[in-house]
Design a protein around this nucleic acid. Structure first.
Length: 924
RNA sequence: GGGCGAGUAGCUCAGUUGGUUAGAGCGCCUGCCUUACACGCAGGAUGUCGGGGGUUCGAGUCCCUCCUCGCUCACCA
């Protein structure tokens, strides 16, 4: 695209809505976000690859602030690296979200008075697929409106043919390596979603329950009873034993005897097992192997039967080997209603002892919050210990870092105690488990390709009915999106391993740690070197934002009202490392003010500057004759350098220098809010408040001064826009396109792909010039303070005399500037009469005298100076005390002592000056 | 119960290996519609750095302890 410098004034108001979509389209047309395999240095190209894989949102999801924050962070990083010359690749995608998506369709069916069973599996899957085909990319489209610079050509979907192929390959490989097995055990079951869940999906929640004491009569005795304490009396129908601790004296004689299970009227044995804690409850535990994971272990140890007494939907039922333990009156009754009924039954039978309140943690389904039912069943599991080992080592040895640092401990703690992963889901929507069973010979065939007959006896086979956990496909995302399992995939060679993974801590276990395991398991290398965990978006009460709670913010509303740049800036600047982002959903205006105000400021700076600079070509500051640059020019160029350095430091190293993070760099960088603040402060406080104000006059009078100012302004603004572009891509692109051409030649077509700013070398001379301008600023500020103190109207001209001047040349040259910035006439020398004048002492020792006629309040002036003197005395005292302290002189580093000495000298001089002033003004 | 972390201005947070007079944004107060910007300009106020103890010439920073809050894991029925 050709840049179009525009002499016409920019519109007074920046119209984000109109501008943003047009610019985004131009970026797409120019194909700026497409990464090419061949350009990666790993395959002989000349650019370092830099890759981020997007945490794939659910296909059913619509954009919320959590996505807004997550993707803004990724986009800022990717845009930064793109400008740094990396072959930057951001892979977008969605996740088929087994349970969530199936729920959506089942709800639709329910509204139509139908169920998935009415429809049948094939038709149901077809319907779901077409729903997804229609709506599935909505969230990715929405991401474009916040400026996401993804390589859309590579958009991935976990249930696509390519990624499904990867899933099947992963399953078969792990099976062949003995890391996948079918297990018969108690798992977490959600009776609402009608599926089993992994440990991670069954989350603990505190509940106020009750501890019911139930008496079991000992068979063959008249009176003797054993009392157990349980929180779940409804499971008693599945009891197969009572257990006591082998060393528990109270019950030793009873071990081996039988007790009678009330209601079911069945005799069960009393057994001894170490698992029992004699100190808890009565020291007797009812053993229900099919409905409690611990009881299951006991059952295995003691070879007990394992009756299942509930149906999958959580109603009481006479399961396969339940032996009709459930009385007819309870069959079909929901487990919680059954609890009440059983309690009252026991009460009638005289078997219920006391009931006491008992707080305990109960697992809930992470999708629908239903209380999870432990249930005995057959599921496929991944053996995790062997997979966890390299993943642990990777973080321990610095191959992978996790930011903020504290999450590394959490990660390690989890992996050290990892348990096998149940990957079977009793759903229809997902990757069907690639296992076929032969009914004739019992063979179990695990295969990469579909199987139609038994490989052993050629008999008929049926495929496992279950699908895989959705996370079993998303844990492959960094490799499957790049072409795995095709080892020849050029993208895999060019872009694996990737670089950063940006997400919320909630899915550290669900997803991040499993991706790391998969990376090592299938590629032999970590999938990324940096995990960046950002905070959560919360409302002003610190409650997590969510649509269902009604405290959410729709990012598209924000984009509509204030623009994507405002959203992005607000999010980035408000988010410290790992800190939560607090926004007020009732007051978007206020919440997004930081971004909106800054965007407007930027726009107005651009408007002002472009109208003053005109559209004739500009020189580069390097080519301006040295004498034509004035103090403010040198100062702003110095500030620019410092700002570039500050931004670079905040962003830090993009990748570990030598393959692994060193201690020094490990937890540095990605301080996005600091980067944003450095860039903002430069633009607003340095460029707008001081430089532009200082240059206003010069730029309007033709001559070399004007040319120099134009060169510097355009250069500095160009660089500032570049620094801000990753955060505010749209407005920076818009303004940048309007910058006049430089004689140095074309800058490039898009700021999005132009080079990131580099610092020019600093020199002691430049440092001194920066310090000089700071003195000028101090003079200006002091005079403005004076105006404010004496309530002198802003429009009223005043006179300022610079006397006792220790920087005569500096003030002589800059007196007109000081005058303009303070609406005063500033001159060198002393006023005819210092009577009724205010006195300002600057830190360099210079003195400004401002005659105020009758306005001056002598006692006020004295009070001010005395106050300052007093404060200085106090500080001087502690400083001098420190310098008299031998311990300090001897033990503190010489440089520190030296600095303190110099400071003491300065302060002594200033004290003398202040004291003189007091004497002169206040009569001693 | 195990592991981890946090408590700094009214709010959200920075404060690098201990070393000036502890910072920023927002909010607040005062005065200004100064022809780029009132979504702005200029000026201003605000901290027992959670409490207590210790190490040190020197502690917001290191150690101990207590209090409060948070995260995370977890089979005491």
């Amino acid at each position: 695209m050709i840049k179009t410098p525009d002499t016409e004034e920019l519109p007074a108001q920046y119209d984000a809505r109109q501008t943003e979509s047009a610019i985004y389209q131009r970026w797409l047309d120019a194909d700026l976000f497409a990464a090419r395999d061949s350009r990666s240095a790993r395959v002989g190209g000349d650019r370092e690859p830099f890759v981020i894989v997007m945490p794939p949102p659910n296909v059913t999801a619509v954009l919320h602030m959590g996505h807004g924050l997550n993707n803004t962070v990724q986009d800022v990083i990717v845009r930064w690296r793109r400008m740094r010359g990396d072959e930057a690749l951001w892979i977008p995608g969605t996740d088929h979200a087994g349970i969530a998506t199936q729920n959506v369709i089942e709800k639709q069916l329910a509204a139509e008075g139908s169920t998935r069973f009415d429809l049948g599996r094939e038709a149901f899957v077809e319907r779901t697929a077409s729903f997804v085909a229609e709506t599935g990319n909505e969230i990715l489209r929405q991401l474009r409106s916040i400026g996401a610079s993804c390589d859309w050509n590579r958009t991935a979907y976990t249930l696509s043919p390519a990624l499904s192929h990867a899933v099947r390959e992963a399953f078969v490989q792990l099976y062949e390596r003995g890391l996948i097995y079918r297990g018969h055990r108690v798992i977490h079951w959600c009776g609402r979603c009608m599926t089993s869940l992994s440990d991670e999906e069954a989350q603990h929640g505190d509940e106020a329950g009750k501890l019911y004491h139930i008496a079991y009569p000992v068979v063959g005795t008249r009176q003797e009873k054993l009392t157990v304490a349980t929180t779940r009396p409804e499971t008693m129908l599945g009891d197969v034993a009572l257990a006591v601790h082998p060393d528990d004296e109270r019950y030793r004689d009873l071990v081996g005897q039988m007790v009678r299970l009330p209601i079911a009227e069945i005799d069960i044995p009393v057994i001894a097992d170490e698992y029992v804690d004699p100190a808890f409850g009565t020291g007797v535990v009812k053993i229900t192997p099919a409905h409690d994971p611990n009881d299951f272990e006991v059952g295995v140890r003691h070879k007990l039967s394992m009756p299942v007494i509930m149906a999958p939907d959580g109603t009481m039922a006479n399961g396969a080997d339940a032996g009709s333990r459930v009385p007819a009156s309870l069959v079909g009754v929901d487990r919680f209603a059954a609890r009440e009924q059983i309690v009252s039954l026991l009460e009638k039978l005289g078997s219920l002892g006391r009931t006491e309140p008992h707080a305990h943690a109960v697992r809930h389904c992470y999708r629908c919050d239903t209380v999870v039912e432990p249930r005995l069943s057959d599921q496929w599991f991944v053996k995790m210990k062997p997979l966890a080992e390299p993943a642990l080592a990777g973080v321990r040895d610095g191959t992978i870092r996790i930011l903020p640092e504290r999450w590394e401990a959490v990660y390690i703690n989890w992996l050290e105690n990892i348990r096998d992963w149940n990957i079977s889901r009793q759903l229809w929507w997902g990757h069907r488990i690639p296992v076929w069973y032969c009914d004739s010979c019992g063979e179990q065939v695990v295969s990469r390709t579909d199987v139609s007959a038994c490989t052993k006896c050629d008999g008929p086979v049926r495929q496992d009915e279950d699908v895989l956990d959705t996370w079993f496909s998303s844990w492959l995302f960094p490799i499957s999106t790049l072409g795995w399992p095709d080892k020849e995939s050029p993208s895999l060679a060019a872009f694996y391993p990737t670089d950063d993974l940006v997400t919320a801590p909630e899915i550290l276990f669900f997803w991040v740690s499993r991706m790391i395991m998969a990376g090592y398991a299938f590629m032999g290398a970590a999938p990324f070197h940096t995990v960046y965990l950002h905070g959560t978006v919360r409302d002003t009460e610190h409650v997590k934002m969510s649509k269902s709670l009604g405290n959410g913010i729709d990012p598209l509303d924000v984009v509509e009202a204030y623009g994507a740049d405002a959203l992005r800036y607000t999010v980035i600047s408000g988010m410290g490392m790992g800190a939560d982002l607090v926004l007020d959903h009732r007051d978007l205006e206020r919440s997004f003010a930081p971004g909106r105000n800054f965007a407007t400021k930027l726009w107005n700076i651009g408007r002002f500057l472009l109208s003053k600079v005109g559209n004739e070509t500009v020189q580069s500051p390097d080519s301006v004759a040295d004498g034509d640059l004035d103090l403010s020019d040198r100062w702003i160029l110095g500030r620019l350098d410092a700002t570039i350095a500050a931004c670079d430091a905040a962003l830090g190293p993009a990748r570990p220098g030598g393959g692994r993070w060193t201690e020094a760099e490990r937890f540095s960088g990605l301080r996005l809010s600091e980067y944003a603040e450095s860039a903002r402060a430069f633009v607003w406080n340095d460029l707008a408040d001081w430089y532009l104000e200082s240059t206003k006059f010069r730029i309007e009078s033709p001559g070399p001064g004007r040319d120099a100012a134009r060169a510097v302004i355009v250069h500095v603004f160009d660089q500032a826009l570049r620094l801000l572009h990753p955060i505010m891509p749209f407005i920076t692109e818009t303004l940048w396109q309007r910058l006049p051409e430089s004689v140095a030649g074309s800058r490039g077509d898009f700021i999005a792909t132009v080079a990131w700013p580099e610092r020019s070398s600093s020199s002691p001379e430049r440092d001194r010039e920066i310090a000089d301008f700071e003195i000028v600023k101090e003079a200006v500020t002091a005079i403005r303070q004076l105006r404010s103190d004496y309530a002198i109207p802003p429009g009223k001209p005043i006179e300022v005399f610079v006397s006792q001047n220790r920087n005569a040349a500096l003030f002589g040259k800059n007196a007109p500037l000081i005058g303009r910035l303070t609406r005063s006439s500033t001159s060198m020398g002393a006023p005819a009469s210092a009577q009724g004048a205010a006195h300002l002492l600057l830190s360099d020792g210079s003195e400004l005298i401002v005659p105020l006629g009758g306005l001056v309040d002598l006692s006020k002036e004295c009070g001010k100076i005395r106050g300052e003197l007093e404060q200085l005395e106090t500080q001087l005292q502690s400083l001098s005390g420190r310098l008299r302290n031998e311990g300090f002189i001897k033990r503190a580093p010489a440089s520190v002592v030296e600095a303190e000495r110099r400071k003491e000298g300065d302060w002594l001089k200033r004290r003398e000056q202040l004291a003189d002033k007091v004497k002169a003004l206040c009569g001693g």
